[in-house]
Structure formats: C-alpha cells, structure tokens
C-alpha cells in the first residue's frame, strides 16, 4: 500500500469536514443555551441529591462521612452563572481541572467519587434521557 507522506487536498478536506462538525455542534449548543436560570443537578451514586441554580451563588459541601463513596471532601461552587468542582480528591483531578462550566447540557463527571454535576438543559425536548449511574471504578 502506498501512503503519501506529503499533505494534499484530501487532508484539507478532512479537516474542513471536522471543522464544520465542530461549528454545527457549537451552534446547536448556543441555540439550546439561552437562559440564566438553568438548573444544576448533583448526582451521587445514581441519585439526585441536590439541586442548585446557575443564577444563585452557592457552595455545596459534600463530606465523606455523609457520602461514603467519596474519596474525600468535595466542594461544588456556583458563582457568576457558572459551576465548578472547587475541591475534590481523585487520581487525576479531571473534574476540578475542567474548571467553570456554564453551558446547558454540560456535565462534570467525577467517576472515582460517584458524583456527576449536570447543568440541565434539554428538559423541554420531550426526550426521556435520565443521567444515570456513575461507577466508582477506582
């Protein structure tokens, strides 16, 4: 099989198609993200344990004593219309590295702690898609 090592027009075509897909997803996301009253659901071990609002600043603290599947204390912060996992203990700290999120439909999944923070956003589409079980795989 002969594979060229030099860039050509087909490569550019592939990048353009990928870019168009990105633009499509961004536009769809913007279309569905138009309010500041989005509900934030905090899931622990497959159950909603707390609800917050993007337009109300709040700090929700989860202690290991009350939530035994946590690796350590976790702090979820809502500030200036954005939410983040401020403090957590996990092997690679992906969920806190993700930083602030504000888009509808975005989720911050912290599998090692069995926690998922979801900015709800598709509740009026009529589609039944319940965010579900977060496994403790570490």
């Amino acid at each position: 099989m002969d594979i060229s090592l030099k860039k050509n027009k087909t490569d550019l075509f592939i990048v353009i198609i990928a870019t168009l897909v990105v633009v499509f997803f961004v536009v769809i996301n913007l279309f569905y993200s138009n309010s500041n009253d989005n509900i934030i659901s905090v899931y622990y071990n497959n159950n909603v344990i707390h609800t917050m609002y993007l337009n109300i600043d709040e700090e929700y603290i989860m202690e290991k004593e009350s939530f035994p599947l946590l690796l350590d204390k976790m702090v979820i912060e809502v500030k200036d219309g954005r939410v983040r996992i401020k403090e957590e203990e996990s092997p690679k700290h992906y969920c806190s590295i993700m930083g602030y999120q504000s888009q509808k439909g975005t989720s911050i999944i912290c599998a090692p702690n069995s926690v998922m923070v979801v900015i709800e956003g598709y509740e009026d589409t009529g589609i039944d898609w319940t965010p579900g079980g977060v496994a403790n795989d570490n």
């Binding site: 997803f25 999944i109 599998a111 998922m116 965010p131 496994a135």
Partner: peptide, 23 residues
C-alpha cells in the same frame, strides 16, 4: 462508550473538544 456506560447523552457535548484535539 462513556455515554452508553454512564447512560447519559450529556457527555456528547464533549465531542467538540475531542474533534479539535483530534485534529
């Protein structure tokens, strides 16, 4: 696969970042 395992379509919002990093 993550969307299937965790039964959530919310993860699909990550597709944009994955395409950019993939390029």
């Amino acid at each position: 696969m993550v969307a299937i395992l965790y039964q959530t379509l919310y993860m699909l919002t990550y597709v944009v970042f994955l395409i950019i990093s993939g390029i």
